[in-house]
């Protein structure tokens, strides 16, 4: 197949320049695992040299057992019709990473703003990380695995003394 040839080319190109783990997940899906220090160089390379111009999504996965956040950047190439997923780990307690908003512009800026609000990841150099959805929220980052929203709602909005509402306590 023509496509898988191009996918191999891209992978060779990346491993020639960076010391990273790479792999083909399936047709049109490549993943790259990069240390967080190399992220900006890798992203620059992927966008400018390999033509991945569309940052489709930015996601964070919380792994409390490892004590890490996994950041995944999903980038689509309009020329090659391939999606590359760049993964990098950051410390969960003090999540900080360099912004990619200088590379992909406003589209990445807004994705980072969302992830900052939901997971508390600080993107250094991002011009605007103000809250997007949650008004007047000063609790922990709500999408962390150890934030139990059921517990939170019970404690904040239900009363044990109330006959009907006490039924919610001690239930999962």
């Amino acid at each position: 197949m023509v496509e898988s040839v191009r996918e191999k080319e891209i992978i060779e190109n990346i491993t020639k320049n960076f010391k990273v783990d790479v792999g083909i997940q399936r047709e049109r899906r490549i993943w790259v695992k990069s240390p967080s220090e190399d992220l900006i160089d890798l992203c620059m390379f992927v966008k400018n040299k390999l033509g991945f111009k569309h940052l489709s999504a930015l996601s964070v996965t919380d792994w409390p057992k490892k004590g890490e956040y996994e950041l995944t950047y999903h980038i689509w190439s309009y020329d090659d019709k391939i999606l590359i997923t760049i993964k990098t780990m950051v410390d969960r307690e003090n999540p900080e990473i360099e912004t990619v908003s200088k590379i992909w512009g406003e589209s990445s800026q807004i994705h980072e703003r969302e992830m900052h609000e939901l997971f508390g990841v600080k993107f250094k150099g991002n011009p605007d990380l103000s809250p997007l959805f949650l008004e007047d929220w000063d609790g922990p980052a709500p999408f962390r695995k150890d934030f139990d929203w059921r517990e939170y709602v019970r404690n904040e909005y239900y009363s044990k003394d109330n006959d009907r509402e006490s039924a919610y306590f001690g239930r999962d």
């Binding site: 111009k53 569309h54 940052l55 309009y78 019709k81 992909w104 406003e106 589209s107 990445s108 807004i110």
Partner: peptide, 24 residues
């Protein structure tokens, strides 16, 4: 359009021929 992350009809109206149904 590409820098701001436009896709679908908005991007096609700006001149890029792209559609996930065809490309993938």
């Amino acid at each position: 359009a590409i820098r701001l992350g436009a896709t679908g009809p908005v991007l096609r109206a700006s001149g890029l021929k792209t559609d996930v149904r065809k490309e993938e």
